[in-house]
């Protein structure tokens, strides 16, 4: 490879897109299928870094990334932190419990103050839908949505897609059942957009009180009967019952929920023989998923966590490149 050779000497690129169109990753909405494929292909290469004796590459040396988490998170926050460190970025994690937010500062003011320290990227999780979009409008840094309210959680959907692709070799034409609290789930929304765009066949299932209106579209069905959703499924994705977001009576009791919607070994037999079972975490064992399934041979739940780092490295790398282009344009 000839670093200084002119553009035509660059090696041929296998997939369609070579870069992301936007400077931010606010959601799956707005990403084209070719961009999704680019992120997944890049993550494939990033995954290899985790297998090395020295799990670090110098790609983001000298870049500063701020992780701004206004909601509790272990998996996503540590996953981003590990991804940033593996790319050699300088990272700064702010949890709201220890920040001035508790003293009444607004989101916009918090971010303007952080901006004064010139971060290159901000990873934000916030309880209000649209918070990352607000940030993207007021600050210069690239913004990555790590979950906003009941809206989107794009990196989760990307790592789910990455995990599915690693097992099935494709996304198009797969039967994917997503079961659980569809109403409050940002994971669902991002997965729905991504898997639908990539041509998977979706069956969404939950208690009728937790199925929002407007989900049906070509390639997407909804049902309140779990057995129907599981029939012949290639992938089963279980969603958490989000009690912290339920300000009303959506389900009679957790025990009844488990009886009607819990994923048990017996129910799982309806799915294909090579089915994979996924869960974005944190799991409520005995509520949406039986322990025997969660720890069983079909479960890829811990793989999802490992893949999360590779996918987030890919997103950070691709957005950093966008930013570099932009700064040269100006």
């Amino acid at each position: 490879m000839n670093v200084d050779a002119p553009a035509q000497a660059r090696p041929p690129v296998p997939s369609g897109a070579k870069r992301l169109k936007g400077r931010h990753l606010l959601g799956i909405a707005g990403l084209e299928p070719s961009e999704i494929t680019l992120i997944l292909d890049t993550a494939d290469a990033m995954k290899e870094v985790a297998a090395r004796p020295i799990k670090k590459v110098p790609a983001l040396r000298g870049r500063t990334v701020v992780n701004l988490f206004f909601e509790p998170s272990t998996r996503t926050r540590t996953s981003f932190e590990v991804a940033e460190k593996r790319l050699s970025a300088d990272t700064l994690s702010i949890a709201t419990a220890t920040s001035s937010v508790t003293k009444g500062e607004t989101l916009a003011d918090t971010v303007r103050n952080l901006e004064a320290m010139a971060p290159d990227m901000i990873v934000i999780r916030h309880g209000s839908s649209g918070a990352p979009h607000l940030l993207a409008r007021i600050c210069r840094a690239a913004v990555i949505n790590a979950g906003d309210g009941m809206h989107e959680h794009p990196t989760q959907a990307l790592l789910d897609a990455f995990t599915i692709r690693a097992h099935k070799g494709r996304l198009a034409g797969l039967k994917v059942a997503i079961v659980g609290d569809l109403l409050h789930s940002r994971v669902l929304r991002s997965n729905l957009l991504l898997l639908n765009a990539m041509g998977a066949d979706l069956c969404l299932c939950g208690p009728s009180t937790l199925i929002p209106a407007g989900l049906d579209r070509p390639g997407v069905r909804t049902t309140a009967v779990i057995d129907e959703a599981l029939d012949g499924a290639d992938v089963v994705m279980m969603l958490r019952i989000q009690q912290e977001r339920m300000h009303g009576h959506f389900i009679p009791s957790l025990r009844e929920y488990f009886t009607l919607f819990g994923l048990t070994p017996a129910r799982l037999r309806r799915a294909k023989e090579d089915v994979i079972v996924m869960h974005p975490g944190p799991m409520n064992r005995g509520v949406e998923i039986d322990s025997e399934v969660a720890d069983g041979p079909y479960s890829v739940i811990l793989e999802q966590v490992a893949n999360g780092v590779a996918v987030r490295m890919a997103v950070l790398y691709l957005l950093a490149g966008r930013e570099a282009e932009e700064s040269i344009d100006v």
Binding site: R10, K18, L38, A45, M46, I328
Partner: peptide, 12 residues
């Protein structure tokens, strides 16, 4: 890597 004025981020 991050000072590439000629084109998009190289594909990894």
């Amino acid at each position: 890597l991050m000072r590439n004025a000629v084109g998009p981020q190289p594909v990894i």
